[in-house]
């Protein structure tokens, strides 16, 4: 067995007093507690909280083009998308849901998205008593995203062709607009008038 350490009583008492002095100093310093529900921390801009779907600011429609890049990028499979091919051979969104119980808030979906459609926002208060209510459907996600500011990135305003779209007219359907002049991003084609964007782009 190792021998017990020999203590020097004088330095021992001195250091006991030093310890008391440190805590006493802190006793009279200002507390750093943030009283959460009444005071709130201002979250940094990049903070990754709840996932939302962004809508076009003018039309109010979802930016999402149902390209499922986000679902493919998700490492945990939290994003579920159902879609079908519309008459114009472009993908139409049937349902879009994010399971917040398994989402790991890594932000890969946001990086994968080419259309400014999905974003992780600094909102963090979405706890719930019910697990089922944490699976957000498209309406919920859109509502959450309505007040989210975003700057449509120029790079993303010039999207690549929709991922799984076959050759033909559909590939060029989401044609790029002039990036610099038009700040509004190219949005998903509207179901009612599918031919319009194509003509506009050319």
């Amino acid at each position: 067995m190792p021998t017990a350490y020999k203590l020097n009583p004088i330095s021992g008492i001195k250091n006991l007093l030093i310890g008391l002095w440190v805590t006493l100093r802190h006793l009279f310093s200002k507390s750093i507690t943030l009283q959460y529900p009444t005071e709130r921390w201002e979250m940094p801009e990049r903070s990754r909280g709840v996932v939302v779907l962004l809508s076009d600011k003018e039309t109010g429609d979802l930016n999402c083009t149902a390209c499922i890049l986000c679902a493919k990028a998700c490492p945990v499979g939290a994003i579920r998308i159902e879609r079908h091919r519309g008459d114009d051979k472009r993908w139409k969104l049937d349902s879009f849901s994010i399971d917040n119980t398994i989402c790991c808030y890594c932000g890969l979906c946001q990086e994968a998205c080419n259309f400014d459609a999905i974003k992780l926002t600094p909102k963090y208060e979405f706890s719930s008593y019910d697990k089922a209510s944490l699976i957000y459907d498209v309406n919920r996600l859109q509502d959450l995203g309505r007040d989210v500011d975003y700057v449509p990135t120029a790079k993303k305003a010039a999207p690549k062709p929709v991922a799984a779209a076959p050759a033909g007219d559909a590939a060029t359907a989401v044609a790029p607009q002039a990036p610099a002049a038009e700040p509004t991003p190219t949005v998903a084609p509207m179901p009612e008038k599918p031919v319009e964007p194509k003509g506009e782009g050319e």
């Binding site: 190792p2 017990a4 350490y5 021992g12 250091n15 006991l16 030093i18 440190v22």
Partner: peptide
């Protein structure tokens, strides 16, 4: 200041 030379801390950690 609180820990390193505190005799109780030394007794608990030295040669342990």
């Amino acid at each position: 200041a609180i820990l390193t030379q505190n005799p109780i801390f030394l007794a608990r950690t030295k040669n342990v």
